[in-house]
Design a protein around this nucleic acid. Sequence first.
DNA 1: TGCTTCATGTAACAAGTTACATGATTAC
DNA 2: GTAATCATGTAACTTGTTACATGAAGCA
Lengths: 189, 189
Amino acid sequence: MSLPHAILTALLEKPSSGLELTRRFDRSIGYFWSATHQQIYRELGRLEEAGLIRALPSAQPARGQKKEFEVLPAGSAELARWVGESQDPKAVRDPLLLRIRAAAVVGPGGLALELRRHLELHQRQLAVYEAIDAKDFPPERTADEDRLRRLVLHGGMALETFWLRWLEEALEVVGDMDPERPGPSAPEA
Amino acid sequence: MSLPHAILTALLEKPSSGLELTRRFDRSIGYFWSATHQQIYRELGRLEEAGLIRALPSAQPARGQKKEFEVLPAGSAELARWVGESQDPKAVRDPLLLRIRAAAVVGPGGLALELRRHLELHQRQLAVYEAIDAKDFPPERTADEDRLRRLVLHGGMALETFWLRWLEEALEVVGDMDPERPGPSAPEA
DNA sequence: TGCTTCATGTAACAAGTTACATGATTAC
DNA sequence: GTAATCATGTAACTTGTTACATGAAGCA
């Protein structure tokens, strides 16, 4: 149940309408928790119903009219509670790792091409993060909230770096393999 | 749509019943794609319906009786197609990164404790992977399918290592912060 | 007989995805 | 006025989660 908390965080950073939130979920917060506009409108409705946020008085409630939301005290409290909650790390669930495992039984086929494509995409994403790092966090700013936001960004950068290194290793392995299916034997990891 | 392919891979490695698959999804393949037994039974039904797998003739179709499945040629073909398919890397979606971001607006609260707990869990998981690496992949084995399976395992190990390093950085940042809210503006309830 | 474990399933729900509908505003 | 865009929303579906149901086999 992270989406409502992602929305609360975004709204605390800046009160917004559904569409503005959608746009921010395409950059910024969305780099770590993506969401479509349908999800966001649905969740805004629930959060309002639950009394955690409210529409700004200035906003008309008509269809097609912009409607801005702000976080109520109950919303801040819920978010603070959630931040310190005990949650187990989520298990890894990655289709690409799974595809490598599948390639071990049916052969790598066109995997090498796909790995090179991913490598490029991750390079591009790392560059995006580095640009944000340079622009939003000049060395002299050291307020606590900036250090935390930078920490999140560093997490994203380190994850992209992980993928780059692993994809290079993967290309070495797949690169000198026969694209046909390998043998039938199989150790159970 | 990765679960059916995870099941096809597991069944190609070794024909199994639903419960056996469930157990293997708790170790082995499940380290990279987890699934509950309800998901597995549902998906086995669909795969059988679609003609990608079939129940072994020896297996009784009675309730409460073990029913083993094997992959049909159509299933292997579908898996091979999927391995080479073009799929964009999945976006990062991690609740812990999100919680750090939230902490930047409502304060870190009890986060440090939670970070230390995660650090320990990731250390433990890395040790599990290292044990598998030593046991299943002695240095002399170099068949293609072993190299691929080892590559997947190395991905898991590198991911755990990423988390360990990042959590250490996070603890440094959070460690010397006031647990109260840092923010530029924030009326408490 | 009653308890536990093995084994397969049903039901209900929550979260996420995809496609489409509709009103309001702005630019030409 | 009409086309594009802004903005909010509905509907239908898929995937994943949680709780519970049911039958078979072993054993004390």
